[in-house]
Structures are given as C-alpha cells and as structure tokens.
Design a protein around this nucleic acid. Structure first.
Lengths: 333, 333
DNA sequence: TTGTATGCGTTATCAG
DNA sequence: CTGATAACGCATACAA
C-alpha cells in the first residue's frame, strides 16, 4: 500500500500539496494537481481513513448498532440507514450487540475514539452514565428507541402508542372482544408504549382483561410458546395482538397447528411491518412502522450533529406515524 | 476522552510504562502496575484502537462483508462468526455490500488500511486484480464462496454439489420424477455447483429435462414469480428443488395459492437450512449447511493468518458436508 | 524496571 | 501557490 509520501515523492512535491488535492482545500495550480492525480492513480493510492481519523478528520463512516441481527426488523432498518448514508457518501459499519451489554460496550470502546463520525443505536441497554460518557467524548449519537425519553439525546420518534391503538381498534372493529396481547420485554420503552396503547384502548372499550397479557421477548419461538400457553389458559380468546411481527409469525404457527382457524376463530395482528409477514400463509396483518423513513431520519439527524453545513433536505423531526396494513389474518367475510 | 498521556501524567510515569501495562509486555513492578491501573480506571481510560491500528498494532477487530443482509442466511452466518470471534476477544464489524460492487470496494478502501485485522467475505464480486491488491496489502482474508476455486485465497469449503445430490436423490426417493430446479445466479460458484449436482443426479436417473431449470436470484419474490411461470409452462412437475431456502418459501407460497397440494402434488426442498423454513406451514425440507461450523472455521482460518501463535483448537480445514433435513414438504404418506 | 525518542499516515499551521 | 513541521494516540527499539 502506498502512502501519501510515496505519491509526493513520485510527483516531486510535498505531502502537504498532495493532501491539498485530496481534500480540495487551498490553492493549487492546475498543472500540479493534474500531475498529482496521475501519480495517485498510478500508485493506486487511497488515503488511510485510520490515519485520517487520528488526525482529527472525518472518516465518512458511521456505525449502526443493532440488538439482534436475526430479527428481520433490524436488517430492514439497516438497509434504510445504509441507503441513505450511502447517498451522502457515507459508509455504514454494522455492529450486532446480541442483546448483550458487554458486546455493546465493546463496540463503543472501539468506535468512540474516532473510528467513526457518529453512531446510531437501534435499541440499547446503556445507562445514563454510559451515554453521557459517549456524549462527553464528542461522539454524535442518535437513538431509535428512546422516543421522548429525554431531550438530551437525539432520537427519531415513532408513535408506538398510537400504533397499538390502531391495532386494537382494528381487532375490535372486526368483532373481536377477548383480545390477548403478547408484549415485548417491558423494560424497552417501545414495547411498553405499545402495551399502554393496547391496555388503554381495551379499557375504553370495556373489555380489558389483565389475564390476557403475556410478556414475550420478540422472538418467534416465544410467539409459539406463549400462544400455546395462552390457548390453554384462556377460553374464548378471539384476537391476538403481538408486539412485533416475529412473534406474530410464531403465534400463527401455533394457531394453525392447534387447528384454530385464522381469522375465523382467532384474528391476529403484529407490529413492525417486516416483509416476512407476507411470506407466510395466511398473510399477517400488521402495524407497519415507516422503516425506511426511520432510517433516513436517523441518518439526517446524525449528519446534522456531525456538521451543520451539509445541505440536507429540510429536517422534519416530526413524530413518525405507523400504518395499519390489513391482510388475511384479520379479514373476516 | 483521556489519552495514554493523561494516565501517565496522573500516575507520574512515562507513556511507555503505561503502554506496557496495557499490553502486558516487558517488565513492570507490581506497584507501578497497580498504580497505573488505578489511574486508568479513574480516568475511564481505554486505548484508541485507531491510534493503535496506525501504530501497527492489532486492533482485535475483523470485518465480515455480506452481500445481502435481508437474506436471513447471512445474518445467521454473521452470528456464527461473531460468536466465535467474540470468544477470542475479537469484535466483528459487519458490512452489507448489497450485491453492489461499488459498495464492496468502498468497504475495502476503508478496511484495507489497518482498520481491521482481517476480512471475511461471504460471497464477493471481486476481480482477481482486486483480490491481489488486498492480499498484497498484507490484509488477511478468508472467503466463504470461492470453494476450491483457488489455492491462493483461504476459504472454507462446503460441498454444495453433494448437497444438491442429496436433495434430488431425496425427491426421487419419495417418488418424484419431473423435478424442477430454481437455481441461483449462475455466476456464483456455489449456485453453479448446486446446479451441477441437480443436473448430474437427474441425468443418472434418466429424468433430466432442461426445460425444468430456471435461473433465480435467491430472493423470495423470485421464488414466487418463477414458480408461477414454472407451473404455467410445464405439465406434471411433481417436485421442486430451489437453490436456497428463501426461494423455497416463495415457491411454497405460490404453490399454496395456486391450490397445489404440498407435498402430495408437488414436493419442495430448499437449500441452506435457515430457521425461516420452520416458520411457515407446512415446514420446508432443506439441505442444511453447517452454518455455525462455517462461521467458526472462517474465523479460525482468519486468526491463523493474522497470527500463528493463537492456540486454536486443531484446525481441520476439511470440506464441510451438508445434511438433509426432511420436513413436511417432502413427507408423503 | 522505567524513560526517551521515533514512526505510523494525515491534516493543519505557518512560513516561504 | 507550495513546503516544512507539529500534532493526533499509541507502540517500541534503545538507553538509562
């Protein structure tokens, strides 16, 4: 690998001059610029982002930390983030934290020191101390989950509560009255908000029953297991709202295997809007998050923190809304 | 963020001494070591991997480049790689290339210069020139797809050919005679090998029909579309072997929607062994790759290139075999 | 056992 | 317009 010095030597100029043409900064004569560019090409030179990072420059690289790469929701987020970042010449590095605090910290340790220009968290298990540590280090961050939890850390906000309301109202509208809920981990704010939306709506309708709420962990296996338990422990459940799509897929499976007719006996609706809901039969109704928009806004917010000049399309950090997508599992004739 | 110099100052020693305790290298008195460690803790110091990389040291970080993060096979590979790497204290950075040569090169540009200690490619579109460029730069690489294509680049080898043979023999054994194949992109060696396995086996059995071979692109949509076309253009197809599981899921969907009974009318088998095959009803038979083992071997091979000393469990770079997993889509009674 | 000095590849500040 | 040279944070021969 050739360095900036090799180029300088070959071109018969100083490294400073080469650096200038690389960064399009300061004055350089057309002649030397052309000569230098030729030399760079000949040596197949490309600047080291590491050295560049050390020298305090931007690396044009951001990191996206996700909790579980095998949950398709996050790969879809990743694509959105990557797409957007890519269109600004920014490369995205992914870190899979595996719901594991230790790994999360390990990533941070690596990234904090100018490895990347900024970090996007899709759901994190950090303490406030740790977050302040990062913020203090000057590393721009954006969070995808702490909706409205604090003004201190930039985040893209999705109205999970309203999404859950949509889901439950939909189930009510097609005639369901005993509607169960398989929630996500209660310590996650997103999950908790969906839970509230469910509870409130059902209370208003006068058919809330705490026995019908089960805490899940967002995995498909859990969706299967809990649904089994749910069917065993309760009579007359005629609708299920799962806090994410993966659990809905699991639930659907158990329902079919148990000989329960979907949606005739039990209607089913998930949350997220991942494409897997369309891969199964019957296709699963869901509350779709604006996945692409989420990724896009996250990148916008991050870039804004990194530098204010970037001429970005008007930042609209409004709260993003979810959308009901009705499919076979909630369509009764 | 505190630097090594801050620690040195606080501890009243030189940076070299601090560096020694960080790297457990050279002699240091128990006393100063303890003192320095205390200072590091107090300052919440952790060394910058960037500077460390620049200074020619290992970064204990590797990169895994995957072609399509939304194909669940790769997240599963990623988990295996991460798991293994993690157990050796190595952090894995992911890059999603999106089947996009430009992005692939962009990642390489970033990674090449001592950003990471090594790179694992899960399927790449690099030319030999480009590969040599990386090799020449001293960056260790391991490839997951170029099975047996060259001795120059280290790779973990899976017997895709034999896997396809297994699949087709299985279909034959349950009575299928007109067996269609939806292949992957023909320019991918893995996909081509599976295709050969299919063709050879069917030829030997005397029932090969080139009209029943369709080229797909490994996506679910493609699985749906091609299956539709396949049903329209051919009579009496009684078995389908798709070159990966995602296409099998798509195929299954089309079959069910077309009122075709699976497996009574048409049996179906996929390839890869991703867990999604168990999420649908009926569950899909598949040729399972030893996903975890693949990731593990890739990491082992990479570490071996990075440094020879690491006491790794006996390296067994044997060819990995696939395994038939029979499920409902090929179980006739 | 510990300190000094130098280099890693770039950028940035000042002089020419 | 261009060239030295000092950072950036760390590792490492070489001294002490």
């Amino acid at each position: 690998m050739s360095t900036i010095r090799d180029v300088a030597k070959l071109a018969g100029v100083s490294v400073a001059t080469v650096s200038r043409v690389i960064n399009q900064k300061g004055y350089i004569s057309k002649d030397t610029e052309k000569k230098i560019k030729a030399c760079m090409a000949k040596l197949q030179y490309s600047p080291s982002s590491v050295a560049r990072g050390l020298a305090g420059k931007k690396t044009d690289t951001i990191a996206l930390l996700i909790p579980d790469i095998t949950n398709p929701f996050f790969p879809e987020i990743a694509r959105a983030v990557e797409d957007t970042a890519s269109s600004y010449g920014i490369t995205t590095l992914l870190g899979n934290c595996d719901e594991n605090g230790v790994k999360e910290l390990r990533y941070l340790d690596i990234l904090k020191k100018r490895y990347v220009d900024g970090i996007i968290f899709a759901e994190h298990g950090l303490t406030w101390n740790e977050i302040h540590g990062i913020l203090g280090s000057g590393m721009p961050i954006v969070s995808l989950d702490r909706a409205a939890l604090s003004e201190e850390v930039s985040s893209v906000r999705v109205n999970h509560y309203q999404g859950a309301v949509l889901a439950v109202e939909h189930l009510l509208s097609i005639g369901c009255r005993r509607i169960a809920h398989i929630s996500g981990p209660n310590h996650l704010i997103t999950s908790a908000n969906r839970n509230r939306g469910y509870t409130d709506t059902l209370r208003n309708a006068g058919c809330f029953d705490p026995d019908l709420v089960y805490e899940g962990d967002f995995s498909m296996e859990c969706g299967m297991r809990v649904t089994e338990q749910l069917l065993k422990e309760n009579e007359g459940v005629d609708g299920i709202f799962t806090s994410n799509d993966l659990m809905a897929v699991g639930a659907l499976k158990t329902l079919i295997r148990s000989g329960v007719k979907v949606p005739e006996d039990v209607a089913l609706i998930g949350f997220d809007g991942i494409s897997m809901t369309q891969m199964v039969e019957p296709e699963i109704s869901t509350i779709a998050q604006p996945i692409y928009e989420i990724g896009k806004q996250a990148v916008f917010q991050l870039i804004h923190q990194i530098e204010d000049r970037h001429e970005l399309p008007e930042m609209t950090p409004r709260v993003l809304e979810t959308k009901l997508i009705q499919r076979a599992t909630t369509t009764r004739f």
